[in-house]
Amino acid sequence: MGIVCERVGYTYALPRGKSLTTLQNISFSVATGEFVALVGPSGCGKSTLLKLMADLLPVTEGAIRFTDAGSNRLQVGMVFQQFGVYPWLNVLDNVLIGLESYSISLAEKRERAYETIKSVHLSGFESAYPHQLSGGMQQRVNIARALVSQAPILLMDEPFGSLDAQTRLLMQEELMMIWESERKTVVYVTHDIDEALLLSDRVLVMSHRPGIIKADITVPISRPRHLNDIDNPTVRELRWQIWNLLDLKNDLPPQTQHG
């Protein structure tokens, strides 16, 4: 299943008749099985775009369509950066949420959940509560829930943003392996350029107020990838190209420029 965004905009109402446009005229498409990264400064609306795709917010302008829509019960699975696992449910129950809409027996649900928990290397932690797990393990639960739901599209909102550097690398490597075997369509929001280059087939660079897409860059690294694949001159140059596109210096508030 792929995604097509056509002139998508998002404007929300503020008190006293004002309104704020956070996204404007966003058009791009993601092919089935493609891994696309959305990179941009904080506040550029990349998370909003993801929420629009997940139907968590209403699209106020344009349209978002899914292509090759199969007979899937669920179209998107989502992984949040924070507050993505229910602290009052154990690992198994957290993962089972991904199967809530399926009308299969509980035994079957549990079997699938156990299998998925195993695939994210959390076997043995089924009855553990999130507060007993590390940040990385909590994100594995989050990913397991999205995987077990069998949604063909995976929306990830800075899933490893709050992990320490080493855990992040480990999780990136594992995500690559999962993607290699499942070939889901992934839209991955991040503000980490290296992460975007390492993981994705294409990087969409956004800028903000209102959010627009500045560039659509294809990452020239072959699959399967390894962590050191981004350590070559071509990719390094690409990194600076994206950095310049982000134009963070001009995003500083005026008082800082004058002062």
């Binding site: 929420k51 997940a54 968590l56 669920l74 949040f80 229910y86 949420i97 809409s101 829930r145």
Partner: peptide, 11 residues
Amino acid sequence: NYFAIGKVYHV
């Protein structure tokens, strides 16, 4: 987010 998860997975 806890409600969003519910919505995403059609709970």
